[in-house]
Computed example of a mutant assay.
Amino acid sequence: MFTGIVEIMGKVIDIAPLDFSESGGKGFSITIGEATEVLVDCHLGDSIAVNGTCLTVTEFDASTFKVGVAPETLRKTNLGSLKVGDPVNLERAMNAHTRFGGHMVQGHVDTTVSIVSKTDDGNAITFVFEVSEEYKQLMDYIVPKGFICLDGTSLTVIDVDDAKRTFSIMMIAYTQTKVVIPRKALGDQVNVEVDMMGKYASKGVESMIQRFLNGEEGEAVVAKIVDRVLAKRAASN
């Protein structure tokens, strides 16, 4: 679990092919340097989010570490487009003493979105992102003033246009110097993880409605909800 508060930007220093033929396809190992700050308490097998993607440390020294990127991860994220020299956002997994400054991020990227506009507002940049037609259902979990994680950065959604499958965020000048998104151009892909709390809420509502439509305890479910509301109202009077 992560917070979406990027600790540092590292730099890709090596990319090498890996054979995942037994599980379907090929992947890569990525070696990331300039990462001393996130390696001071590192152990083999630890999780580090790279551009918001939870990856396992397989080798490390004082300033570099290596991770493996499997085929499924390449399909869902922008890690396959990385080149030697590219900067990447890095965040260690949370511990019990972490100040919780962002939101609950799993590091499980849903897909990538493309940058369709960048508007300089003086002290800030407003970015607009487009969700592909294939993943348009993710718009259900993107709401104005809600959380979203972009390349591992916890951000607040400004506006949402469901018809155009777009949403916008604003990034202040300080944040622009600490994360990779401002370095990207129009059309570039950004990893996105929508708020998992929205997924859980949606799943619960859908499940309840489906049971009601199937006649499985539908009336009982509604009755319980009504009883709870009436009990709360009576307690407050």
Rank of each mutant, 00 (worst) to 15 (best):
F2V: 11
G4W: 04
I5W: 10
V6L: 01
I8R: 11
L18P: 00
L18T: 08
D19T: 04
D19P: 08
S23K: 12
G25W: 03
E34N: 04
L39P: 01
L39M: 06
V40I: 13
C42P: 00
G45M: 09
D46H: 09
S47V: 06
A49W: 07
A49N: 11
F60R: 12
A62W: 02
S63L: 06
K66N: 10
A70F: 11
E72L: 02
T73K: 03
R75E: 12
S81G: 08
V84F: 04
L90D: 03
A93L: 05
N95S: 04
M104L: 14
G107A: 03
G107I: 09
H108G: 04
H108V: 07
H108A: 06
V113C: 12
T119E: 13
D121Y: 15
D121N: 13
A124T: 06
I125R: 11
F127A: 00
F127E: 02
F127M: 03
F129W: 00
E130S: 15
V131I: 15
E133W: 07
E134A: 15
L138P: 00
M139L: 08
M139P: 01
G146W: 14
C149F: 07
C149N: 06
C149R: 04
L150W: 03
L150A: 11
D151S: 13
D151F: 14
S154R: 04
V157C: 05
D159P: 02
D161L: 06
D162Q: 13
F167S: 01
F167N: 07
T175C: 08
T175M: 04
Q176R: 14
K178N: 11
K178D: 09
V179M: 03
I181M: 05
P182A: 08
R183H: 06
G187W: 04
M197W: 01
S202Y: 15
R211A: 09
N214S: 13
G218L: 01
E219R: 12
V222I: 15
K224E: 10
I225R: 03
V226G: 00
D227V: 07
R228M: 11
A231I: 02
K232L: 05
A234I: 05
N237R: 14
